[in-house]
């Protein structure tokens, strides 16, 4: 695996994503749900909302890096707020 140039932070990042995917898969199997329509006027399941959260978080981090440029971990707080909003209203 040397050629993949692994580092601890990137491994932790992918492990978190994998854990989220596994958790949401288990949730989908154990507690099936019907899609709901939120403020975006589109039908979403838990998985869809996770996707929107992750994609949005990537852009939030990039925007923070480009506009603020320091204290990057604080961007994660914005991401958590974003996640809460997506899961509540989308």
């Amino acid at each position: 695996m040397d050629w993949m140039a692994w580092t601890w932070p990137t491994a932790a990042f992918f492990a978190t994503i994998a854990a989220l995917l596994i958790t949401f898969t288990v949730l989908a199997i154990r507690f099936p749900e019907t899609p709901r329509t939120g403020i975006l006027r589109i039908e979403t399941t838990r998985g869809d909302r996770l996707f929107i959260t992750l994609l949005g978080s990537a852009f939030i981090n990039l925007a923070w890096l480009g506009l603020v440029g320091e204290h990057q971990p604080y961007a994660l707080i914005v991401c958590l707020a974003w996640a809460a909003a997506v899961f509540r209203w989308v």
Binding site: W3, M4, A5, T7, T10, F13, F14
Partner: peptide
């Protein structure tokens, strides 16, 4: 796997 490698490259 290639995408993961790209992520690894991007921080090094």
């Amino acid at each position: 796997i290639p995408l993961m490698t790209v992520v690894n490259y991007s921080v090094q």
